[in-house]
Computed example of a mutant assay.
Amino acid sequence: MSRINANTKGVFVIAATPFTPDGKIDHNSLDGMVDFYFDKGADGLTILGMMGEAPKLTQSESLAIAKQIIKRAAGKPIVVGVSAPGLAAIGELTKAVMDEGAAGVMVAPPGNLKTNEQIITYYANVVKTIGEDVPVVLQDFPLATGVSISSATMGTIFENHPSIVMLKHEDWPGLQKISDLRDAEKKGRRRVSILCGNAGVFLPEEMRRGADGAMTGFAYPEMMVEICRLCNADQYDKAHDLFDAYLPLMRYEQQPALGLAVRKFILARRGVIAHASQRQPGADLSPTAQQEVIFLMTRLEKRMAEIS
């Protein structure tokens, strides 16, 4: 199993966790979901993140899911989200998934961190807990965590800990942060990989600022793969043309508290998972909302047929 590093590029899809309507893990859908993501061009997967409903899983369930996905991936890189309120849980799950062949782990800061010093100390403690040999993705998602990490603070963390090799960038607005990090690298700071979240809504701009790819769960991974390819070839007009076709669905997905329900509904409609169910608590789409998503999907299919 290959491990992520500071030069990792491409699309690492944030994977959903499929559930049956009664809230059990749908192990039958897991393998097909993994195959789908890689068939659509993903370079890797990130599992047990916020989209994966990780806080609703027990530690044993998280490990069972990780084992199954890592095995199915057959050597392709799998990053595992291990964020937890306490360092002991982070350390336990990290050791278990790395022993199974994970490519690295992703850690978001807990919401009680309020100062730059606290944030810096927290990541020092994470690295001390899991070991300096484990590749780490720093998840910067202040809209969800409530923790804002400045470019300068992030730079200090990267300088102090070479094992933190990747930033999952999903600050909003946050394009300047990408520029700040790349400018610092030009002046001598070590390189880190930057993969971007935010449901892909800024992906063309992020790539132009120096991002290495995407790490998000939009239910059409083939779009993200192609946009990254076009941007890497400096074909920005074509990248934006393709992006524009998907924008109505991406916009619809941005509704607070409904984004995951929309994504799972689309994945189910595409035959990727058997059910759109979330483990409770979780909001389902109303029949009206479902019809709106179907309408947008149908329009997208027509638009893509015209483009091709």
Results as ranks from 00 to 15, higher is better:
T20C: 06
L203V: 04
G271P: 14
N125A: 09
R269L: 08
T145W: 09
G197F: 10
E206P: 01
M50A: 14
A274D: 15
L230C: 02
L260T: 15
K76N: 13
A199P: 01
G91L: 02
V82T: 12
V137N: 13
S308L: 12
S62V: 04
V126K: 04
I149F: 07
G49P: 14
L203D: 01
K177I: 00
G91Q: 03
E170M: 14
F158S: 07
M106Q: 15
G271N: 13
A305T: 13
I178N: 02
I4V: 15
V80P: 04
T145Y: 07
L300I: 07
T298A: 14
T129A: 08
G213F: 01
V13C: 14
I178D: 00
K24A: 15
T20Q: 12
A276H: 09
L249G: 08
R303G: 08
V80S: 10
S60G: 03
L175E: 02
E226V: 00
R263H: 14
L300Q: 07
Q278S: 13
V79Q: 06
G155T: 10
L203A: 02
A305W: 02
H275A: 11
R229M: 00
Y252P: 05
R190A: 09
S150V: 02
N28E: 15
P204F: 01
G44F: 11
P110N: 05
L247E: 08
I65F: 05
V126M: 03
V201E: 03
I164D: 12
L57Q: 04
L249C: 08
P109K: 12
G200D: 03
Q280I: 12
V147H: 12
Q235H: 00
R189Q: 09
L296E: 10
P21W: 10
H161E: 04
S62Y: 04
G101V: 04
L300M: 06
S151K: 03
S151V: 01
A96C: 10
R229I: 00
G49W: 15
R299F: 01
V134A: 05
Q139K: 15
T216C: 15
V126R: 03
D39N: 11
F295L: 05
A233M: 00
P21T: 10
K264V: 14
Y220L: 08
P135T: 10
Y123P: 11
G155S: 07
G217P: 15
L296C: 11
S193Y: 11
M98L: 04
K114D: 07
N116E: 13
E206N: 05
R263L: 15
F218D: 12
M154D: 03
T121G: 09
Y236K: 00
I70Y: 06
Q176F: 02
I4H: 11
D284T: 15
E292S: 12
H275M: 03
F243I: 04
G52N: 05
A108T: 13
L195K: 10
I157F: 10
K24R: 14
F265C: 07
M51E: 11
E185P: 01
A74T: 05
G10Q: 08
D133G: 01
A6Y: 09
L63P: 03
N112C: 06
A64G: 07
F19H: 02
L300W: 06
G49L: 14
L249P: 05
A245Y: 05
V293D: 08
P85S: 06
F295N: 06
D35P: 04
D171T: 13
Y246E: 08
I14F: 15
S150P: 01
T153L: 07
K56I: 02
I157A: 05
S83Y: 08
